[in-house]
Design a protein around this nucleic acid. Structure first.
Lengths: 224, 224
DNA sequence: TGGAAACGGAGTCACACACTCCGGTTAGAG
DNA sequence: CTCTAACCGGAGTGTGTGACTCCGTTTCCA
């Protein structure tokens, strides 16, 4: 039974509203760090409230994640839109990728949604519908201006983003900017032509990279 | 208790040996398709034997996965080694990436090990030790010959492979060759300079891509 | 100040899997 | 052919996990 809508519209009591906010913030942080596998108990702990309180505001885990996801999509949609207002079409595309990736790379929860965790499956469709047109515009404009190779397509951009952000998620704890190095390489592959490579951010010490890979262990279960 | 080593060396009975092989083949297939989360019950079912039989040959899940992983590493090490014997240094590097990725992209289990599933953690170190030198050679030779940009490093190759193979894993069921498109772009980013883009494989219909993303659902649990 | 609204968090429940156990079957040595 | 050690199947066990509920207590605010 859904407890939160006795009178659908009555505003929440002050403390309740305060807690709702704390929960949302905590959830954003916890899911970003741990992915959607994180427990609502943990979210509650970080928010400094009891689990009961979480369930009083959000009927179930999915709806909490949904709210969060909608916010994230809003943000990215805005990014794409405001990139479109920039004058230099190549810089606009690069800027969009950098900004979007910065968010995606530090948000494991977002990845989980995209990869198809059962939470918020249908919201993905809506998200794509909202973002696709802006990206298409960015791509085609950069092509008209002779920056971007002609054989790529709007749909390639999300795929490339996904590809890079996986890497980012994996290394986010110990080499949080490593993904930029590979974005540069990809961008050098997207440009129509070039006479020399763009400068790359330094490659981290090997132990950092491998440690990064193995610091993932959320669930060290069963295999002890 | 470990049941399989009564007399460490005695050869297995004919039927037992036959089953061991069936189990190994089934496990390779199942883990490649589903990742390491797959159940040994499922492996047994595919192999056409009972779970008990699986546990009689392999003391636990980890050791079965370990055996499989060692095989996969062998294969990739051989690839790297035999790439080194090729005369054209750029073609050698590209060939290695294509071959290695073809394997990694169709093997979700491999990804799980690399990403740090608790199975076979220490085997990773050994694997890296074996493969790293050959890759270093491939990279530096291609740089000396003026093909590969100078600012990349041996360690970049596994990272790029990882990045692309995530994508591959995600789309392996419905667009099994999609990763090649993005490998081409990355390679165009790795080359020292170029006057035009390399030809790209066609971009699939949009519905294929998104369906690909959402066909992943291994565990549709809890979120119904 | 009364009572509706909100709170906390121990407890419930359902499920998922790695692994075991044992009664029945079979290979293959003598 | 026979006999037994080796092998087999798969129902069952044990453990862990995590979403969600319940209810006695506390807090807001009219």
């Amino acid at each position: 039974m859904n407890r939160q809508t006795q009178h659908p519209d009555r505003p929440l009591r002050a403390d309740a509203e305060r807690n709702r906010t704390k929960i949302l913030e905590a959830a954003a942080q916890v899911f970003a760090e741990q992915g959607l596998e994180a427990t609502l108990d943990e979210v509650a702990a970080v928010a400094g409230v009891g689990v009961g309180t979480v369930y009083r505001r959000f009927p179930d885990k999915e709806s909490l994640i949904g709210t969060l996801f909608d916010n994230a999509v809003d943000e990215i949609a805005n990014l794409a839109h405001s990139a479109a207002t920039r004058t230099n079409s190549w810089d606009a595309l690069v800027w969009f990728l950098e900004e979007a990736l910065q968010r995606q790379c530090s948000n494991r929860g977002l990845r989980d949604v995209v990869v198809g965790s059962p939470y918020a499956v249908d919201r993905m469709a809506e998200a794509k519908r909202r973002i696709t047109p802006s990206i298409k515009f960015l791509v085609e404009r950069a092509q008209r201006d002779g920056f971007l190779r002609d054989d790529v397509v709007g749909g390639d951009i999300p795929v490339l983003e996904m590809m890079i952000s996986f890497l980012g998620n994996l290394t986010s704890t110990s080499a949080p900017d490593l993904w930029r190095r590979y974005l540069t390489i990809v961008l050098d592959g997207l440009v129509v032509a070039r006479t020399e490579p763009s400068p790359l951010q330094a490659f981290p010490r090997h132990d950092v990279v491998s440690e990064a890979l193995h610091s993932v262990h959320r669930h060290v279960g069963r295999a002890t």
